[in-house]
Design a protein around this nucleic acid. Structure first.
Lengths: 337, 337
DNA sequence: CTGAAAGCGCTTACAG
DNA sequence: CTGAAAGCGCTTACAG
């Protein structure tokens, strides 16, 4: 690839002059300007951003580190972040940490040595010493979807508490008196928020909570099937189930079907997050959607602000979830099975 | 962040020595070595990869440019590519071109100026002049999932022709005599392969093809619903439908349900690609899956080979698809609706 | 084994 | 307006 020296010599000017016409920060005579531009075109010269960055101390590049690119939560989040980045002329690159802390740590180091201007992070777990290290090195980080208690990082996340509360109130308003909670990962703080909102929703709806209303111990289709079936076999059978995620709900739906039970007639269902399959399942699944696009966009704006103003106050942004009421909780919304 | 000069002065050695102990390519006395390493730890010094790359002429970074990160085809592909990259100590970063050529072009330029060592590209469309430009600049590119006719790029893709053929033979073997094809984008070369395989499958199964067996003009749930319903209303009604993608099939399924038709009893269905929802739909969808993980992994291996051996012969790798037979085409596979 | 120096490809004051 | 020079943070021969 051509270097600035080559275009300078071909155009018979100094490299400084080439730099000046390209950057446009210093006036250059039209004659030289045209000569330089012609050579630039002729050679298809593109400045080496590595060299530029070395001087200018910024790369105009942001890294987005995701726990699991397979999770339907993330594509929209990335879209939001990407659009916000492009709007300010930053390049957003995405990395997948595969839900492994060591991988996350390696990625963080790789990003740091490549001097990205900032990082958007959907952390893998509670472990945070490696994150602290890169924060202490001075690279701005904003957390996606959850808050890391220890480090005072900016974060933007959905209001899981309120979302759970709202869905329980909805379920109760449809006449369901006993509403169960299907757990995924009880140790996950996000799920704990959801569970807390559920408990409070029960209370506000004047409904009782008891231990027999809880089931599930990890995520996944199979666990949804297993724990969902167990729940449906309880006597008395709960009228409704709020699942901690859509995967569990899909398994649950399968279990009901195999048991000859119908939803919402026999059991109403609602689930967290709203991957595409919710709308395609039978019955269509009522879901508490996170505003993923907005989370991504907002997080990027905050990151960019912090890059340009490192001392700004740490912020925590909480965005409302959206309740999509569909067949699985509402007999009215078209012919449900 | 600390620079090599800082650690050199703190350790009272020259920067060259620091570099030598860190790279390990030149022997250094234990005394100096320990002193340097101590300071490195103390300062949490990480070499600036920008500067390193400027000298060494490689960034150890690969860009993966995807047409649509929302497409369930891609997460696994990225996993495959990422694992292959890490194994050889390269960093893989992902970019989304949003199915827009201009965006793809901007990303390609951004990647080129940042001097990535190579690019994995799932191109957005037939337009290829901007791709040619970066190839001509000398950056190795391998194409994902399709072949760009004009440029002689390495590519790795699924055998769509054979996959279609196989699924038609399967459908025919289940006793279906008239098998329709539900189109997404007729201009898409990948779909054309699929359609050709379908035609040939019909022929090999001794079945007739006629124009009334074709429907659909673009992709999406709604079009699947619309064109699927049209197909199901034809007289005589086709026994089976092969959908160009799973989204179409989901819409089609919805249409059948609304028409009071059952699958596979009234109409058998198979679809291309195998997003998660295929296994969760009711009935579960028979699908021709692309070996996404393998495509990604293989493509990365080829890219890495080309990086180290630029003159190697151009290669085209075709991987077999996998037919997942499920309820929608096989009454045997559990109680189908 | 160790250090001084040149150079990777740019940008940015500073003279002229 | 234009060019020569210093410097960004490294690596790599080359002396010693």
């Amino acid at each position: 690839m051509a270097t600035i020296r080559e275009v300078a010599s071909r155009a018979s000017v100094s490299v400084g002059t080439v730099s000046n016409v390209l950057s446009g920060t210093v006036p250059v005579s039209t004659r030289l300007r045209d000569r330089v531009l012609a050579v630039v075109r002729e050679l298809d010269y593109q400045p080496n951003q590595l060299a530029q960055s070395l001087k200018s101390r910024h790369t105009k590049m942001i890294g987005m580190v995701l726990r699991d690119i397979t999770d339907p939560l993330f594509p929209q989040m990335m879209r939001g972040a990407k659009d916000a980045a492009w709007a300010r002329n930053y390049l957003l690159v995405m990395l997948d940490s595969d839900a492994k802390v060591e991988r996350e740590q390696q990625i963080l180091v790789a990003l740091r040595t490549r001097r990205v201007d900032g990082i958007l992070l959907a952390p893998t777990g509670p472990e945070e010493s490696h994150i602290r290290a890169v924060r202490d090195a001075g690279v701005p980080i904003v957390c996606l979807g959850r808050e890391l208690p220890g480090l005072g990082l900016d974060c933007v996340l959905a209001d899981n508490y309120k979302g759970a509360h709202q869905s329980v109130v909805h379920l109760a308003s449809m006449g369901n008196r006993s509403i169960a909670f299907l757990h995924g990962d009880r140790a996950d703080p996000v799920e704990q928020e959801r569970f807390a909102g559920y408990r409070r929703g029960l209370q506000d709806a004047g409904l009782a909570f008891e231990a027999s209303l809880e089931a599930g111990s990890h995520s996944g289709l199979d666990e949804g099937y297993r724990a969902g079936a167990a729940l449906a076999k309880r006597n008395p059978r709960p009228n409704a189930i709020l699942a901690a995620d859509a995967m569990l709900a899909a398994g649950l739906l399968r279990a009901l079907r195999d048991m000859g039970l119908r939803s919402p007639a026999d059991i109403a269902i609602a689930a967290f997050d709203d991957p595409f399959c919710c709308d395609v399942l039978r019955p269509r699944l009522t879901a508490v959607a996170q505003p993923s696009y907005e989370i991504g966009a907002k997080a990027m704006e905050i990151l960019l602000s912090r890059i340009h103003e490192p001392e700004r106050r740490r912020s925590k942004t909480v965005l409302d979830t959206i309740l999509h009421i569909r067949e699985s909780s509402s007999p009215l919304s078209s012919a449900a099975t």
